[in-house]
Simulated scan of single mutants.
Amino acid sequence: MYKIALVEDDTELRSMIAKMLERYEYEVMNVEDFKNVLERLIELKPDVVLLDVNLPFVDGFHICKNLRNNSNVPIIMISARNTDADQILGVELGADDYVLKPFSVEVLHSKIKASIRRAYGYIAEKTSTVYGDFRLDYRTFTVSFIHNETELTKNEFKILKILVDKSNTIVSREDLLHELWDDVAFVDNNTLNVNISRIKTKLQDLGLTDVIQTKRGFGYKFVPYWLEKENE
């Protein structure tokens, strides 16, 4: 049973969402201490967070940013703030999805299922990908090379996993965006650029230079060049 943390200050809406989640056999954990939302979420360790934007004391954007710095848990933001800027901000701060109020319970449920599938769907099948001294660990969201290891954010991990799974093959920017976010219309191109840049920096710190190659106008390619040296 997946655990859903629900952060919503509208008691009527919170009750409606909780009943829907319980009907679909999720374990619902209501967070009602709005002065200490971040601390409570870290303590609860949910599988998915449903996070309202307009909260007392601290808004959802601030909580989302700080939670993402501490956890890879999928975050779905819920808000009546429907401008493109608000939705882009939510995604850039680390949210996996952004649901506009009013919404149907079926739409929200589909978003939750998609987030769970993207975050956890492959873990039961495989725990890591290994290319010689290179290892991408699905359980810890870490990448290691020889004796060095570094942690990845959730989106960094997902991008790298897609590229690693299709090693030596160009993956288009559009394919990466569709894999990462349900509605790419609300994703700024710079968001992907920033994530790719961070991944490259972390790989360089491990001693891997130019392992992710940028093919301008096409996309990106993961090249495990060290395998050729190992086979010489």
Score class of each variant (00 low, 15 high):
31 V>C: 04
144 S>L: 05
230 E>N: 09
9 D>G: 02
40 R>E: 14
6 L>F: 06
96 D>S: 13
126 K>Y: 10
156 E>Y: 04
163 L>T: 01
64 C>T: 10
222 F>S: 00
196 I>F: 04
117 R>I: 05
151 E>W: 07
122 Y>E: 15
223 V>F: 07
204 Q>C: 03
223 V>A: 04
196 I>Y: 02
150 T>C: 15
9 D>K: 03
25 E>K: 11
118 R>Q: 13
195 N>H: 13
136 L>I: 03
71 S>T: 05
115 S>V: 06
84 D>F: 10
207 G>T: 07
91 V>I: 15
225 Y>G: 03
176 L>D: 03
77 M>V: 09
110 S>P: 01
13 L>Q: 13
176 L>H: 01
22 E>C: 02
46 P>Y: 02
149 E>M: 12
203 L>S: 04
117 R>Y: 08
19 K>H: 09
175 D>C: 06
125 E>H: 14
85 A>V: 11
162 I>M: 14
171 V>C: 03
4 I>S: 00
33 D>R: 06
168 N>I: 09
71 S>H: 00
86 D>R: 05
39 E>S: 12
99 V>Y: 05
200 K>V: 07
215 K>W: 06
17 I>E: 01
95 A>Q: 00
231 N>R: 12
21 L>Y: 02
41 L>M: 05
215 K>H: 12
27 E>I: 11
194 V>E: 09
105 V>L: 14
53 V>F: 06
10 D>T: 08
124 A>F: 13
53 V>W: 01
11 T>Y: 08
198 R>T: 06
213 Q>P: 00
173 R>S: 11
14 R>V: 02
140 T>H: 05
184 V>E: 07
202 K>H: 07
184 V>L: 06
53 V>L: 15
47 D>N: 15
83 T>Q: 07
8 E>I: 04
226 W>Q: 08
40 R>F: 02
63 I>P: 01
227 L>Q: 11
117 R>S: 12
92 E>G: 04
117 R>T: 09
41 L>I: 05
200 K>A: 05
